[in-house]
Design a protein around this nucleic acid. Structure first.
Lengths: 146, 146
DNA sequence: ATTAATCCTATCACAAAGGTAGTAAAAATT
DNA sequence: AATTTTTACTACCTTTGTGATAGGATTAAT
């Protein structure tokens, strides 16, 4: 049970984009450098985020990225959903899944409750919160180094 | 992000074993039939549960399985750990994982908190609770059918 | 001796994930 | 206008892990 790299890298990319205050946005290339990711692989990540409508280019093709709405209005679930159809930790939780013991399966209830917990957690966290925490952590780190 | 079938089937197998009141235990073959699983695949599941010390044979080789301790003392985390080294939703949460931004990574904190939530959830649920729920669901189902 | 069950290892097929390549297109720069 | 730089998008490749089967060894009951 692992979360995939796309969602994880996507989250880190979004933090970088959210942090950028420059009106010209941030280049994909720069995100790759700052987060130490392959720029080529980041292609997919950034593309998916754009298709999902979470980010956009400031000018045309050669231009930086910015968020399409305030970071406080973007939840981690939104970011997750740019890469996954949703959150579904076991197949039998989806609609149109046939199973005899569906109506009386304690195991299913167990997984279903966990699935809901994860969804709630993803909904409860905004990009803004993560950005603030990021800034805080870096400040703390700076002090410890000195 | 999916939970694997081993853990899921293992949970269902454990419910069947916990439910069995016969002193001779329950045959793997019977678990397979009741839960509609391939007996051959269940081989691995039952084997892992036995190696983990959660179940044992009543007599010798040809005999039924019983729990090694009361269902109320077995958590779902115990069952999970029979199949997985633990719960670790992203690699960088393990010890001996090198990462530059380890000390100041809001994303890591986000995943870490979720990881802890899942562990707590797994610890909080006992096999006994699931068994009781199972019995309750079946009773309810019986009423609805009639 | 035979049968029926578990024990245990090996193997396989398939899908998904992680990542690279390459071309097209657009805009900025020269 | 030519060149450079960057994104846009598709295709592909390689590796890993998962779900599952095969099959012989072992043990105990009949």
């Amino acid at each position: 049970m692992k979360f995939n790299t796309k969602t994880r890298y996507g989250l880190r990319a979004m933090i970088e984009i959210a942090r950028e205050t420059d009106h010209n946005g941030i280049y994909q290339k720069e995100i790759a450098e700052r987060q130490n990711l392959s720029n080529k692989y980041l292609d997919h990540i950034v593309y998916a985020l754009k298709v999902a409508g979470l980010i956009t280019n400031v000018k045309g093709k050669k231009s930086g990225y910015i968020l399409t709405k305030p970071a406080s209005e973007i939840t981690i679930l939104d970011i997750n959903n740019a890469f996954e159809p949703g959150i579904c930790i076991i197949d039998c939780l989806t609609m149109n899944y046939k199973c005899d013991r569906e109506a009386s399966c304690a195991a299913k209830v167990f997984w279903e409750d966990l699935n809901d917990m994860i969804i709630d957690y993803f909904k409860s966290k905004t990009l803004q919160q993560l950005l603030e925490q990021q800034v805080k952590l870096e400040k703390k780190e700076g002090i410890e180094i000195e």
